[in-house]
Amino acid sequence: MPTYPSSGAGTARKAIAARLRELRLEAGLKGHELAARCGWHKSKVSRLENAITPPSDDDIRAWCAACGTDNHTADLIAASRTADSAYVEWRRLQRTGLRRLQESRMPLYERTRLFRSYASHVVPGLFQTPAYASALLSAIGRFHDASGDVVEAVAARMARSRVLHNGGHRFTLVLEESVLRYQLGTPEAMTSQLGHLLSVMSLPAVSLGVIPFAARERDLWTLEAFNVFDDQRVHVELLSAQVTISAPSEIALYLRAFAKLREIAVYGTEARGLVTSAIDALR
């Protein structure tokens, strides 16, 4: 039986295996019947359904075709390809330091043309000031026992934010008003961060909206923070791990949620008023 680098990866593999079994049962096929349709030895079906052998892309295509469920092929292939990296604990990502983690994401940000971000707790990294980033990364480092290179990590995060000023990129950001009110660092650091948001709002490539506390007729609850990179992948940051979503149907779900969140956000003068009010409260 293969060993997986984390329990999250093993869980992901088992979920894929369980879904394959469900498709077979829903199609009314016995294991040997599906094997015959695919031209396999009957033991292969058992190995795939028990997550003993990870399926190849061709295995998934053949399985779905045999079950008459080709509409599930793309999602299952995407889930299988990313099973080992879809759920990665922060202790693994941070074991070589916070700086390397920041630098490792640079290529993804540089090749992304449309960056969409929803923030419900803290200002997203691309829009942070050095003082705010330092306060946040210091807290993360202390909590996860990975605080040795915060200064270098902050510098790497600031270097990554240069994509805001490069051509060919667009950034759509939606913040809950609570993000403006959660103080990280000193009052001066928070005031500077909020002032930076006001500056960022004037950039032609940036659309920044704020969902007010008093937003009426809100038909979508506050969600976990997430980033969407073009239409190719979604990153969700949990307390324990980073989750990478690449299944087309799941990406579509996050894009739908993002569209709804944008609808209840305010922009321009109203958004600036909420930021300014938060600054006034600090003073």
Rank of each mutant, 00 (worst) to 15 (best):
Y4T: 07
L238G: 01
V234L: 06
V179M: 09
Q242W: 00
A271I: 14
R142F: 10
A51S: 09
E224Y: 12
V150A: 06
M158V: 02
R142I: 11
L23A: 09
A247Q: 04
G31R: 08
H169V: 08
D145A: 13
L114Q: 15
R113V: 04
R24K: 01
E89L: 09
A83I: 00
H144M: 05
V45G: 03
L136T: 04
A259H: 14
R216M: 13
T53Q: 15
T82N: 11
R105W: 05
P124T: 02
E152K: 07
A83M: 04
K42P: 15
S207M: 13
I60P: 07
R283E: 14
E188I: 10
S104H: 06
L76D: 11
V122C: 14
A36E: 13
S161E: 00
A156R: 05
T73G: 00
N50C: 08
F127A: 07
T69E: 02
I279A: 12
R47M: 07
A15Q: 10
D219R: 08
V243A: 12
A225D: 08
T69D: 03
K260G: 14
F127C: 01
Q232M: 09
L203H: 04
L48E: 01
L23N: 00
G39D: 03
R256M: 10
S117H: 11
A119W: 11
L136A: 00
A247C: 03
P130I: 01
S199C: 12
A51G: 06
D57L: 09
V179A: 00
S85Y: 11
Y109H: 01
G125Y: 00
V123W: 08
